[in-house]
């Protein structure tokens, strides 16, 4: 008598449910952590560190982030300004945009992200340029150093 081996036509399928569960969890984790506000930050700027600087808890009504590199180039709104004096028109635009949102120039929060090796004189020059345009609320941004 001839025995025929039974050929199983069914496809073997593993139970994928736990893997899908874990994968979705991972996606949710990375989605929550992803930070799209990075666009305002220039990565090449190495901020000085400080133990006392406290991360802002409340976002200001209107903020302007000025990145100042070691050579005095200001990176602002995706543009590079090789000279601080060229910032006038861009800052004027920001002032107008703030006024549309009912924020006075003196209440605009100017966040200065300067490289740690930039001469302080350039930072002061940037501050006085902003002062001339009526801005007076400055924040010097630094990297938080964890206390030991």
């Amino acid at each position: 008598m001839k025995f025929r081996k039974k050929n199983s036509s069914e496809i073997m399928e593993a139970d994928l449910t736990p893997m899908i569960d874990v994968t979705f969890l991972l996606i949710a984790f990375f989605m929550v952590l992803i930070n799209f506000t990075e666009v305002d930050r220039a990565e090449e700027i190495l901020l000085p560190k400080s133990r006392l600087a406290i991360p802002p808890t409340v976002r200001p009504d209107y903020q302007v982030i000025l990145n100042l590199d070691v050579n005095g180039v200001v990176k602002f709104g995706g543009q590079d300004f090789t000279n601080i004096d060229l910032l006038d028109s861009a800052l004027e635009r920001e002032k107008s945009a703030a006024q549309i949102e009912n924020v006075q120039p003196r209440d605009i929060s100017v966040i200065i992200r300067s490289h740690q090796d930039t001469p302080t004189g350039l930072v002061q020059k940037l501050i006085s340029k902003c002062q001339q345009l009526g801005l007076e609320n400055f924040s010097l941004r630094v990297k938080e150093q964890i206390n030991n």
Binding site: L26, I27, F30, M31, L33, I34, N35, E38, L47, S50, L52, A53, I54, P55, P56, R106, I111, I127, Q131, E136, N137, F138, S139, L140, R141, V142, K143, E144
Partner: peptide, 19 residues
């Protein structure tokens, strides 16, 4: 998401009001 993930150190401010 894994490729775009980057650990960002916290940043803080020193506030200076200078009219």
């Amino acid at each position: 998401f894994i490729m775009t993930f980057k650990i960002v150190e916290m940043e803080g401010d020193f506030n200076v009001r200078m009219p």
